[in-house]
Every structure is written in C-alpha cells, then in structure tokens.
Amino acid sequence: MLEARLPQAKLLKSLLEAIKELVVECNFDCNDSGIAVQAMDSSHVALVALLLRADGFDPYRCDRNLPLGINLTSLNKILKCAGNEDILTIKASDDGDVLNLVFESKDSDRISEYELKLMDIDSEHLGIPDTQYDAVVSMSSGEFQRICRDLSQISDSIVIDVTKEGIKFSASGEVGNGSVTLKQSGSVDREDEATTIELQQAVSLTFSLKYFQYFTKATPLSSRVVLSMSNDVPILVEYKLDNLGYVRYYLAPKIGD
C-alpha cells in the first residue's frame, strides 16, 4: 500500500500544472524510494520525468512497486477542491482501483476526502542515457519563462546559441526577428538572477517554442532552471525541487533547413 503526506497541497497542484499540458494520462510509479513519473507527449517530441523522493514526504510508506494510472484531467478536478495550504495525504491499497486524497486544513477543523478512479495505462519506458552535455546553463527560471513568452511573439521556433560569453536565444518570423542574450554573470547581489555557463564546446540548437512554453509552467516550483545541451541531441530542461526531487523535460531538436 501507499501512504504519503505533504505539508502543502500547493506543491502537488503546481506539479500537476507543470505536466498536464504535455501529458493527459500517466503512471505514477510508487516504490519505497519515492514516486516517479516518466511520460511522453502524444507526438513523442517531448518527455517529462518527475521524481519525488520518499524523504520529501512526512510520513511516506510504500512497501512494494505500485503503478498508479492517473488521468491528469480528473486529478486536476479533485485537486481544485484542495486549499493551497491544506495538508495533503494520498493513499492507495495494493489491489485497489482508486486513489484516496485527504485534504486537511491547517487547524484540522475541516477534513475532506476524495477518491480518484485509477486506470490501467500501458506506458513505454524510455531508457535515457547518462549524457555529458557540451553546455550546461543555469539561469533564473523567471527569465527563461519571459524569454520564451517574448520570442513566441516572433516565431514558433527558437534558436539557442551558447558560447563562453553567454547564451543567446533568437527567433525569426514574418514580423521580423528578435533575440535575447544573457551574459555569464555577474549579478553577485542576486544569486537567483545569475547566469552561469559550463561549456565544453559551443552549441547551436533549434527547438519548438510551444514545448518550452509548456515546460515553463514549472516556473513556480523553482527559482532556477538548468538547460543542458549538446548539438543534435535532445535538450534537458531541469527544475530542482527543494529537498524533494526534480521535474525534468527533454525536447528533441529541430534539424536541418
């Protein structure tokens, strides 16, 4: 059986926001080390990998591998019934076909209980190789979100060039073109705003902006985002969750003219 408690329902709400534009239904794979999700979008262009470690919950109990097949639209409906500050407990029995969700107000004078019907989902699990990336850029997640939003005015594609001087995002479309360059900084006063670049080799990659805009739904989960890139391979976009795990997105590049 699974029993896992989070001090604030807001976290699960935010996680759901971060994946529900990409994926309609997926397995939440629960075991004694935590809860993991790996799912691709329907076009197999993007993949989301989510890890919530057991020690990020208090308490956490799961004695065997338990895949919980969840329709995210349905889960979203139920989570709308939770207050952001509610204590959230999820429970599932080994052979059950429902997920129990309990929302408890902080002063415990209101307890609501919901059951979400689970489903059987055949998920294909992709083996993602450990990769040494040529360029690893850590930057403000809010800045990344703004750049994606701004350049989506210009084009549905974005070109990312990383050199030792900085990272340049550019777009070219019918109205004209635009670019934003962030220099390796710099902002010693505001660590959250700094851009740091680890570079083995310069990279230049083109991606669909639509997917980046889905990824930036994870912005509320972390003040930082890490972009890991090598030429001609999928980008890894990672948001680390404080003391809990991560949300990682992979996006295949666009290639050729």
Partner: peptide
C-alpha cells in the same frame, strides 16, 4: 523551415 525530430530517435524504448 526545419524538421522536428522524435525522441524515439534518441532514447531506447523498453
């Protein structure tokens, strides 16, 4: 315009 690759071209299924 450019061609969108699929993740299946990079990662192995199981």
């Amino acid at each position: 315009s450019s061609n969108q690759k699929s993740l299946d071209d990079f990662f192995n299924g199981s």
